[in-house]
Nucleic acid binder design. Structure first.
Lengths: 156, 156
DNA sequence: TATTGTTATACTCTATAACTATA
DNA sequence: TATAGTTATAGAGTATAACAATA
């Protein structure tokens, strides 16, 4: 927070490591560190709820879109279907989701959120939002919007 | 392939997945996707040189700072020392780095870059820079600088 | 034949613990 | 005792292949 990194002459510390001047300009390095830093704030915030960011994402999609086929969640979240099996397993075991056969297509499983799931999602989301806010603490409100906008643009 | 699931009104495609409206606002999602997108461009660019971004980072630091102890590289690059052993192993086997005992402290290994290492580093760096440029293609030059600045600020 | 979900399996990345040789 | 490097090992995360049930 204190150090405004002067890149060349100063050996500025980034997080727990000493910043390598040869790397601090590289976008991959910045993105990796930023994402790692985000996880380091988010993980402990979600830990009391027994879920991580990916599980929260699944809960959010199911609550926003209603009962969903696993295949649909796979498309939404960009994870492998075998990974989705494990995610839904965990959420089902925790009583946050239910799985049932889709009457229209008996190959498919319809995933629905439970009352507990809705509550946990709401509370975990609030905790994650709070963590996100803390993570962005060093930026002004316009800078925060700008960062989101630029990341969004780069993803497209 | 056929189904464009038209979530609500805007069915915007992000990369290979359909963007979940409930998630597109979340910073963790944006950072993860941005980093993944970056890797998807960088990896094939570096592939001809037989290295990845992390190996290139090590080469860059050794070339920029001269013969370095592994411990120093660990501090610079923020990876575990056991991971650094594997990285230096690979670079040494490829003939890009050499390892020798430090006469001052015979516990330590001094890592130096070879002629081949310098050449590969230069060529791979150019390829990575080109990939980075393509990745940022959708942003104006000021926006690119802004993105770097904001990521840098958030890391501190 | 193709698709949904599943299991088994493997591969990468990373971290922990224990060891060695030095200090 | 502590440190640099190493090895063995285990845990996540993710992907591939093969299978059952269904379309």
């Amino acid at each position: 927070m204190r150090r405004v990194p002067r890149s060349h002459s100063t050996a500025d510390a980034v997080g727990r490591a000493t910043a390598p001047s040869a790397l601090s300009a590289r976008l991959g390095y910045l993105l990796k560190r930023a994402y790692a830093g985000y996880l380091a704030v988010q993980a402990p915030a979600l830990q009391p709820f027994g879920i991580d960011g990916r599980l929260l994402a699944v809960l959010s999609v199911v609550e926003a879109e209603g009962p969903s086929l696993q295949q649909r969640l796979v498309e939404r979240l960009n994870v492998d279907r075998t990974t989705m099996v494990a995610i839904v397993d965990r959420l089902e075991q925790g009583g946050l989701l239910t799985r049932e056969r889709d009457p229209q297509d008996r190959r498919a499983h319809l995933v629905s959120i439970t009352r507990d799931g809705e509550r946990i999602r709401r509370e975990a989301q609030a905790a994650a939002d709070e963590a996100e806010k803390r993570f962005l603490d060093g930026l002004s409100a316009p800078e925060q919007r700008q960062l989101r906008r630029l990341l969004q643009a780069v993803i497209d």
